[in-house]
């Protein structure tokens, strides 16, 4: 059940059997959320955190005019809202973009982990730092990259993040989200996102159709995105 989560952690550090057991013992329940279902509503008091087990989820900010900005996409294995452990409410929603399942861990249990598992605590601190690094890279995308480069960058990032949890098949991966949601990640409209995907397809770099992404020319896609994976901290080491 937590396989993807453990793969993600072990891609960056050693996780002992005792630490694995400590994580597994914290799961109080598994919840299923349908596509477009809200997992966390902004500014509501929170007492639990959720790990994404399957599906694609996102952090989003709703705007008064009904638009929304997706600020991070979540793939299986992500500790979707670990930051709520210290924040106790979130300034954003967490939403399931496709049908999702989540493991639920109480804040009280995580508090015990911080008291009994210092290394695991640092591993999770590292995890929230990495989320911040991803946010920074998305800010850079929104502020400096063209729509084409932003889209290319997003697919390069997903290729790596899904690869870490063994959810890629060569250069293909399932991505059960809409063009509208892609648009909301990179700050353009759905029609513009459709056009941008068409350009990537015409260039022979990327196909995205029927919830399946296939990277046709990874090097060209990376060049177009000016993609440097350093912000994903892929190196293993003691945290």
């Amino acid at each position: 059940m937590l396989d993807a989560h453990l793969k993600k952690l072990r891609a960056r550090d050693d996780i002992s059997a005792a630490e694995e057991q400590a994580i597994r013992a914290g799961v109080r329940e598994v919840i299923k959320v349908p596509a477009d279902g809200l997992v966390v509503r902004a500014n509501q008091p929170l007492e639990v955190c959720t790990i994404l087990l399957s599906g694609i989820a996102a952090r989003q900010k709703d705007m008064p005019d009904g638009k929304r900005q997706i600020t991070e996409i979540h793939v299986p294995g992500d500790f979707t809202d670990l930051h709520s452990f210290t924040l106790k409410r979130l300034d954003h929603d967490v939403v399931a973009l496709s049908a999702c399942s989540f493991a639920v861990l109480p804040h009280k249990y995580l508090e015990q982990i911080t008291e009994t598992q210092p290394h695991l605590t640092r591993v999770y601190w590292f995890g929230t730092n990495m989320d911040a690094a991803i946010h920074r890279e998305w800010v850079v995308s929104l502020g400096t990259r063209s729509a084409l480069a932003r889209m290319a960058h997003l697919f390069c990032e997903l290729h790596i993040r899904l690869g870490i949890v063994d959810l890629t098949r060569g250069d293909s991966f399932d991505l059960p989200i809409t063009q509208q949601e892609l648009a909301e990640m990179i700050g353009i409209t759905p029609v513009h996102a459709n056009r941008t995907l068409q350009e990537l397809r015409k260039n022979g770099w990327l196909e995205f159709a029927g919830a399946l992404a296939t990277i046709k020319d990874l090097e060209a896609l990376k060049r177009a995105a000016e993609f440097d994976p350093a912000y994903l901290y892929l190196e293993r080491g003691r945290r």
């Binding site: 759905p190 029609v191 459709n194 068409q198 350009e199 015409k202």
Partner: peptide
């Protein structure tokens, strides 16, 4: 469905809003 046509080409909307 919002289909886009300009000098760059035609982009069919298969998803819709």
């Amino acid at each position: 469905l919002l289909h886009l046509h300009n000098r760059t080409g035609h982009t069919r909307d298969d998803e819709g809003l």
